[in-house]
Simulated scan of single mutants.
Amino acid sequence: MPADDEEKKRPGVVYLIQKNKVYIICWLIAAASITAIVLVAIKYWELKERQLNVDYEFNQLRGSLAVAVNDPELLTGSPQDVAEEMRRVPGRLAKANRIKTQKAEIYEGIFHRKSIRSSPWHRQEKSRYYFSKGEKTWYDAEDFCSAQGAHLASVLNNKEQNFISSKLQRTSWIGLTTENEEGKWRWSDGSRLVQEYWSEDQPSNPRAFRKSNQDCAMIVPSLASRNWKNNSCLKRYRWVCKENMDLGE
Protein backbone atom coordinates (compact mmCIF):
# COMPACT_ATOMS: atom_id res chain seq x y z
CA MET A 1 0.00 0.00 0.00
CA PRO A 2 1.41 3.35 -0.91
CA ALA A 3 2.60 5.48 1.92
CA ASP A 4 0.23 8.31 1.03
CA ASP A 5 -2.85 6.08 1.45
CA GLU A 6 -1.59 4.85 4.82
CA GLU A 7 -1.27 8.41 6.05
CA LYS A 8 -4.82 9.24 4.95
CA LYS A 9 -6.31 6.36 7.01
CA ARG A 10 -4.60 7.24 10.30
CA PRO A 11 -6.78 10.27 11.23
CA GLY A 12 -9.97 8.14 10.92
CA VAL A 13 -8.63 5.47 13.23
CA VAL A 14 -7.63 8.08 15.82
CA TYR A 15 -11.05 9.68 15.57
CA LEU A 16 -12.79 6.34 16.20
CA ILE A 17 -10.60 5.58 19.16
CA GLN A 18 -11.26 9.00 20.67
CA LYS A 19 -14.97 8.68 20.00
CA ASN A 20 -15.08 5.28 21.70
CA LYS A 21 -13.27 6.75 24.70
CA VAL A 22 -15.95 9.40 25.02
CA TYR A 23 -18.66 6.71 24.90
CA ILE A 24 -16.84 4.65 27.49
CA ILE A 25 -16.38 7.66 29.78
CA CYS A 26 -20.04 8.62 29.41
CA TRP A 27 -21.09 5.05 30.17
CA LEU A 28 -18.85 4.97 33.23
CA ILE A 29 -20.26 8.29 34.42
CA ALA A 30 -23.82 7.03 33.88
CA ALA A 31 -23.05 3.76 35.71
CA ALA A 32 -21.46 5.68 38.58
CA SER A 33 -24.46 8.01 38.75
CA ILE A 34 -26.90 5.11 38.82
CA THR A 35 -24.82 3.41 41.51
CA ALA A 36 -24.76 6.61 43.54
CA ILE A 37 -28.53 7.04 43.17
CA VAL A 38 -29.08 3.44 44.28
CA LEU A 39 -26.78 3.91 47.27
CA VAL A 40 -28.49 7.18 48.21
CA ALA A 41 -31.90 5.49 47.90
CA ILE A 42 -30.77 2.60 50.10
CA LYS A 43 -29.37 5.04 52.66
CA TYR A 44 -32.59 7.05 52.55
CA TRP A 45 -34.75 4.01 53.28
CA GLU A 46 -32.40 2.94 56.05
CA LEU A 47 -32.69 6.38 57.61
CA LYS A 48 -36.43 6.35 57.01
CA GLU A 49 -36.73 3.02 58.83
CA ARG A 50 -34.60 4.33 61.68
CA GLN A 51 -36.79 7.43 61.86
CA LEU A 52 -39.88 5.24 62.03
CA ASN A 53 -38.30 3.25 64.85
CA VAL A 54 -37.33 6.47 66.63
CA ASP A 55 -40.87 7.82 66.19
CA TYR A 56 -42.30 4.58 67.55
CA GLU A 57 -39.98 4.59 70.57
CA PHE A 58 -40.70 8.29 71.14
CA ASN A 59 -44.45 7.71 71.07
CA GLN A 60 -44.04 4.79 73.48
CA LEU A 61 -41.98 6.98 75.81
CA ARG A 62 -44.45 9.85 75.50
CA GLY A 63 -47.39 7.56 76.24
CA SER A 64 -45.71 5.99 79.28
CA LEU A 65 -44.68 9.40 80.59
CA ALA A 66 -48.19 10.80 80.13
CA VAL A 67 -49.61 7.93 82.19
CA ALA A 68 -46.88 8.18 84.84
CA VAL A 69 -47.36 11.91 85.47
CA ASN A 70 -51.12 11.82 84.81
CA ASP A 71 -50.94 14.44 82.05
CA PRO A 72 -52.98 13.46 78.93
CA GLU A 73 -51.73 16.54 77.08
CA LEU A 74 -48.31 14.90 76.77
CA LEU A 75 -49.85 12.38 74.35
CA THR A 76 -49.85 15.12 71.71
CA GLY A 77 -46.94 17.10 73.10
CA SER A 78 -43.86 18.07 71.13
CA PRO A 79 -40.45 16.47 71.68
CA GLN A 80 -39.49 19.64 73.58
CA ASP A 81 -42.45 19.14 75.94
CA VAL A 82 -41.46 15.54 76.54
CA ALA A 83 -37.83 16.51 77.10
CA GLU A 84 -38.88 19.16 79.61
CA GLU A 85 -41.06 16.65 81.45
CA MET A 86 -38.22 14.14 81.48
CA ARG A 87 -36.02 16.76 83.17
CA ARG A 88 -38.65 16.99 85.90
CA VAL A 89 -38.70 13.22 86.51
CA PRO A 90 -35.93 13.18 89.18
CA GLY A 91 -37.77 15.85 91.16
CA ARG A 92 -41.06 13.96 90.84
CA LEU A 93 -39.38 10.75 92.01
CA ALA A 94 -37.86 12.53 95.00
CA LYS A 95 -41.28 13.98 95.90
CA ALA A 96 -42.93 10.56 95.51
CA ASN A 97 -40.32 9.03 97.83
CA ARG A 98 -40.96 11.74 100.43
CA ILE A 99 -44.71 11.09 100.27
CA LYS A 100 -44.11 7.35 100.50
CA THR A 101 -41.93 7.85 103.57
CA GLN A 102 -44.52 10.11 105.20
CA LYS A 103 -47.30 7.59 104.58
CA ALA A 104 -45.14 4.78 105.92
CA GLU A 105 -44.65 6.80 109.10
CA ILE A 106 -48.39 7.39 109.35
CA TYR A 107 -49.13 3.69 108.90
CA GLU A 108 -46.48 2.81 111.45
CA GLY A 109 -48.05 5.23 113.90
CA ILE A 110 -51.50 3.76 113.26
CA PHE A 111 -50.58 0.13 113.65
CA HIS A 112 -47.95 0.38 116.36
CA ARG A 113 -49.43 2.89 118.78
CA LYS A 114 -49.66 0.97 122.05
CA SER A 115 -52.86 2.61 123.14
CA ILE A 116 -54.58 1.76 119.87
CA ARG A 117 -53.28 -1.79 119.75
CA SER A 118 -54.73 -2.48 123.18
CA SER A 119 -58.07 -0.70 122.64
CA PRO A 120 -61.28 -1.70 120.84
CA TRP A 121 -61.00 0.34 117.64
CA HIS A 122 -63.38 -0.43 114.77
CA ARG A 123 -62.66 0.15 111.10
CA GLN A 124 -65.42 1.60 108.89
CA GLU A 125 -64.49 2.65 105.35
CA LYS A 126 -61.76 5.33 105.70
CA SER A 127 -62.02 5.90 109.45
CA ARG A 128 -61.38 4.09 112.75
CA TYR A 129 -63.62 4.50 115.80
CA TYR A 130 -63.07 3.98 119.49
CA PHE A 131 -66.12 3.34 121.68
CA SER A 132 -65.28 3.91 125.32
CA LYS A 133 -66.41 1.84 128.27
CA GLY A 134 -65.61 4.47 130.90
CA GLU A 135 -67.02 7.97 131.28
CA LYS A 136 -65.40 11.41 131.02
CA THR A 137 -66.35 15.05 130.56
CA TRP A 138 -66.46 16.24 126.96
CA TYR A 139 -63.14 18.03 127.43
CA ASP A 140 -61.37 15.03 128.94
CA ALA A 141 -62.81 12.77 126.25
CA GLU A 142 -61.46 15.08 123.52
CA ASP A 143 -58.06 15.09 125.24
CA PHE A 144 -58.10 11.28 125.32
CA CYS A 145 -58.89 11.09 121.61
CA SER A 146 -56.20 13.68 120.77
CA ALA A 147 -53.62 11.58 122.62
CA GLN A 148 -54.47 8.73 120.24
CA GLY A 149 -54.04 10.94 117.15
CA ALA A 150 -57.82 11.28 116.80
CA HIS A 151 -60.74 13.53 117.85
CA LEU A 152 -64.18 13.04 119.24
CA ALA A 153 -66.19 11.66 116.34
CA SER A 154 -67.65 13.83 113.60
CA VAL A 155 -70.73 12.48 111.81
CA LEU A 156 -70.78 13.44 108.14
CA ASN A 157 -73.47 11.28 106.53
CA ASN A 158 -76.32 8.84 107.16
CA LYS A 159 -74.10 5.78 106.89
CA GLU A 160 -71.73 7.07 109.55
CA GLN A 161 -74.64 8.13 111.80
CA ASN A 162 -76.17 4.67 111.57
CA PHE A 163 -72.83 2.92 112.13
CA ILE A 164 -71.95 4.89 115.28
CA SER A 165 -75.47 4.64 116.70
CA SER A 166 -75.51 0.86 116.15
CA LYS A 167 -72.34 0.46 118.24
CA LEU A 168 -73.56 2.46 121.22
CA GLN A 169 -75.31 1.06 124.26
CA ARG A 170 -75.27 4.23 126.33
CA THR A 171 -75.25 7.97 125.77
CA SER A 172 -71.85 9.04 124.36
CA TRP A 173 -70.10 12.28 123.51
CA ILE A 174 -69.36 13.17 119.90
CA GLY A 175 -67.16 16.01 118.63
CA LEU A 176 -69.83 18.65 118.02
CA THR A 177 -69.52 21.76 120.17
CA THR A 178 -70.51 25.41 120.26
CA GLU A 179 -68.17 26.47 123.04
CA ASN A 180 -65.92 28.59 120.78
CA GLU A 181 -68.78 30.67 119.38
CA GLU A 182 -72.21 30.63 120.96
CA GLY A 183 -74.83 29.18 118.65
CA LYS A 184 -72.27 28.04 116.01
CA TRP A 185 -71.94 24.26 116.14
CA ARG A 186 -68.60 22.96 114.88
CA TRP A 187 -66.79 19.62 114.80
CA SER A 188 -63.65 19.39 116.93
CA ASP A 189 -61.74 17.74 114.04
CA GLY A 190 -62.42 20.71 111.75
CA SER A 191 -64.88 18.89 109.48
CA ARG A 192 -67.69 20.92 107.94
CA LEU A 193 -71.12 20.44 109.49
CA VAL A 194 -73.12 18.98 106.59
CA GLN A 195 -75.71 16.77 108.31
CA GLU A 196 -77.51 17.15 111.62
CA TYR A 197 -79.48 14.53 113.54
CA TRP A 198 -80.93 16.46 116.48
CA SER A 199 -83.80 14.90 118.34
CA GLU A 200 -87.03 16.84 118.79
CA ASP A 201 -86.62 20.29 120.43
CA GLN A 202 -82.84 20.00 120.18
CA PRO A 203 -80.47 21.67 120.43
CA SER A 204 -81.69 23.58 123.43
CA ASN A 205 -82.35 27.27 122.83
CA PRO A 206 -79.33 29.57 123.35
CA ARG A 207 -80.62 30.93 126.68
CA ALA A 208 -80.84 27.44 128.12
CA PHE A 209 -77.39 26.31 127.19
CA ARG A 210 -75.81 29.62 128.15
CA LYS A 211 -77.08 29.07 131.69
CA SER A 212 -76.12 25.40 131.95
CA ASN A 213 -73.07 25.25 129.64
CA GLN A 214 -74.91 22.93 127.23
CA ASP A 215 -72.32 23.53 124.54
CA CYS A 216 -71.51 19.90 123.68
CA ALA A 217 -73.37 17.24 121.71
CA MET A 218 -73.94 13.58 122.44
CA ILE A 219 -75.71 10.62 120.87
CA VAL A 220 -78.53 8.98 122.84
CA PRO A 221 -78.89 5.56 121.12
CA SER A 222 -82.34 4.90 122.60
CA LEU A 223 -83.79 7.76 120.52
CA ALA A 224 -83.50 5.91 117.18
CA SER A 225 -82.13 7.74 114.12
CA ARG A 226 -82.47 11.40 115.18
CA ASN A 227 -80.70 11.00 118.48
CA TRP A 228 -78.45 14.00 119.08
CA LYS A 229 -78.84 16.08 122.20
CA ASN A 230 -76.79 18.87 123.71
CA ASN A 231 -75.77 18.95 127.32
CA SER A 232 -73.26 20.44 129.73
CA CYS A 233 -69.72 19.69 128.60
CA LEU A 234 -68.81 19.02 132.25
CA LYS A 235 -71.11 16.03 132.63
CA ARG A 236 -69.57 12.59 132.38
CA TYR A 237 -70.60 10.22 129.59
CA ARG A 238 -69.02 7.60 127.41
CA TRP A 239 -67.47 8.90 124.20
CA VAL A 240 -66.60 8.02 120.59
CA CYS A 241 -63.22 8.83 119.04
CA LYS A 242 -62.70 8.95 115.28
CA GLU A 243 -59.42 8.74 113.40
CA ASN A 244 -59.30 9.60 109.71
CA MET A 245 -57.50 6.91 107.70
CA ASP A 246 -57.82 8.66 104.35
CA LEU A 247 -54.22 9.40 103.26
CA GLY A 248 -55.22 11.02 99.96
CA GLU A 249 -54.27 8.11 97.71
Rank of each mutant, 00 (worst) to 15 (best):
M1P: 12
D5L: 14
P11N: 07
P11Q: 06
G12P: 01
Y15N: 10
L16S: 10
Q18C: 09
I24H: 04
W27Y: 07
W27F: 09
A32W: 00
V38L: 07
A41F: 01
I42C: 03
K43F: 03
W45M: 13
L47A: 11
K48N: 13
D55V: 06
Y56K: 15
N59D: 14
N59I: 07
L61W: 06
L61M: 09
S64F: 07
A68E: 10
N70R: 11
P72H: 04
L74I: 05
S78V: 07
E85G: 01
R87H: 10
V89W: 03
P90C: 09
P90A: 11
R92Y: 11
L93Y: 10
R98E: 13
R98F: 04
I99R: 10
K100L: 15
T101Q: 11
Q102S: 13
K103Y: 08
K103G: 02
G109C: 03
I110M: 05
R113G: 11
K114W: 01
R117E: 10
S118Y: 01
S118C: 01
H122F: 08
H122K: 14
R123S: 05
E125L: 11
E125D: 15
F131P: 08
F131V: 10
Y139S: 15
D140K: 12
A141G: 04
A141Y: 01
D143S: 13
D143F: 01
D143E: 13
F144A: 09
F144V: 05
F144C: 04
S146R: 15
Q148N: 12
G149P: 03
A150G: 06
L152S: 05
S154M: 04
V155M: 07
N158H: 11
K159R: 13
F163D: 00
I164R: 03
Q169F: 08
I174L: 06
I174F: 06
L176F: 03
T177I: 03
T177Q: 05
T178V: 05
N180M: 12
W185M: 06
R186H: 02
S188Y: 01
D189S: 08
S191F: 01
Y197C: 02
S199L: 04
D201K: 14
Q202C: 06
S204T: 15
S204Y: 07
P206C: 02
F209K: 12
F209C: 08
F209Y: 15
Q214P: 00
M218D: 05
I219C: 02
L223W: 06
S225G: 04
R226Y: 15
K229Y: 07
K229F: 04
C233N: 11
C233R: 13
L234H: 10
K235I: 14
R238M: 07
R238N: 15
V240P: 04
E243A: 12
L247T: 09
E249T: 13
